[in-house]
Design a protein around this nucleic acid. Structure first.
Lengths: 251, 251
DNA sequence: GAAATAGTGTCTCTGAGACAGTATGAC
DNA sequence: GTCATACTGTCTCAGAGACACTATTTC
């Protein structure tokens, strides 16, 4: 097939967002209720069309802002914005019943937030635990007792996003993206426990994270917001790749 | 922006391929010479348009077949095809000077092959070492003594593909995708050495790979094609994730 | 015989996990 | 005081890396 720009099939390109946070010791994802067909009334991942002169990452950052008010991280690392990275691209010809849509999914990791602000085209938005959305592996989202799958192929996209997050906090410092700017070792441990769904030994965890160079930087302050003995406050250090990595138990 | 399929910007969607192999103890990538503008006469990654009713992975497999004659791996793992996986998607509005093109890059890992068959729209195709294409980090492809960058943003795509391959053989059994169906421990070690650009201790490597469950399965045969004492032949075992992982030195 | 590659044994050091014990707050 | 959490120390075991040594081929 010659590379002929005048004869290409028409595609729509969208971005979809897997926005994850940790709330109440559980990994949660942001879902919005669809206001129009297809899948009207069903829950879906936030997202929308890429504009004609817009980069993919810019489109993802714009949708994130519109749906949650969150800013994404600046490349210089200067702000407290959420982490945003490209996840994967989904282009099954049948994934949207109306037309050919290729969606570039992005993964967003954010600290715990107030209730989401439903903006733009979303009738409503909410945080749902990843477990309830992914069900027992049957791809059904639980709403009350009713099992309803997410719209389009968003179950698959969410699963890929959750798995990316679970593996990436092993060898990178990304778990700090789920924490506020200052946090304790115990709070960071609860992030790992929520994302992996396991219990970790607090003593070994403490020794490990404080001993990994560049992971945590003490800020000097302390807090007792978890009760018990005051805990040192830390912020994320400059390291992005952890060496040695954090190991997920029972792999 | 409402999800309105009748008002979307026009996009072209392509697949580009980072096809890697190991030849003469060096990691090599497949490049094709462009026959038309833009970037006429320059080297580029193989690729082409996604067809109207074609899945992204199917388009990548089709382009691979057209440009190299290689079949990609069937999902049931029954054949000896090359490994193919999605890499990332590149959609800078300026990446193609003619129009808005979003390219879904795929990574292909293949055993050493005869000279590539230039098919379809490629004037010619060749294997070039990753080092020569990536230069000293300056993004220039060497041809003789002349430094010529790859077309479009293919330098960036190639770099991402090489980095994916380098990291993925650490924790998966994908290094066997560079080997013929039956291979020796020494041949597998030379794959790691070529991809990582390091020297590994043959004795520790042997103990490690033969001790990792599910990585290698002895076929019973032996070969002396490397000279010296006859070496056992192995084929890839069922394991895809290695536990414990192979560790890249000096990280 | 020399040279080359394959494969085993053994030592040391690092780090993960188990878990005892101490420190410091709220009540 | 009790309770909860933070933090430190110590033990054991697995595995990575260094490297001596043996095995089996070609020349």
């Amino acid at each position: 097939m010659p590379y002929d720009p005048s004869a290409f099939p028409p595609f729509a390109v969208t971005v979809d967002l897997v926005v994850l946070t940790v709330r109440n010791h559980a990994l949660c994802a942001l879902v919005v209720r669809r206001g129009e067909p297809p899948f009207q009334g069903r829950w879906a991942l936030p997202g929308g069309f890429v504009r004609a002169e817009e980069d993919l990452e810019a489109a993802a950052a714009r949708e994130l802002k519109e749906e949650t008010g969150l800013r994404s991280h600046e490349p210089d690392g200067s702000d407290a914005g959420a982490h945003l990275e490209q996840l994967a691209t989904y282009g099954d010809p049948q994934r949207d019943p109306r037309m050919r849509v290729v969606s570039v999914a992005h993964l967003v990791l954010a600290p715990d937030l107030p209730a989401p602000t439903a903006g733009g085209d979303a009738r409503s938005a909410r945080w749902a635990t990843a477990d309830s959305l992914l069900g027992s592996g049957d791809g059904m989202a639980r709403e009350g007792d009713q099992a309803v799958p997410l719209a389009f192929d968003h179950d698959r996209i969410l699963l890929d996003g959750v798995e990316r997050a679970r593996s990436k906090i092993e060898y990178s410092s990304l778990a700090t993206a789920f924490c506020p700017p200052e946090f304790t070792v115990g709070e960071l441990r609860r992030v790992y426990e929520a994302v992996w769904g396991v219990a970790l030994d607090p003593r070994n965890f403490h020794r490990k994270v404080t001993g990994t160079p560049g992971f945590l930087v003490p800020t000097g302050g302390t807090t007792t917001r978890q009760g018990g003995r005051p805990a040192q406050l830390f912020r994320a250090g400059g390291a992005t790749l952890l060496n040695p990595p954090m190991l997920r138990p029972e792999v």
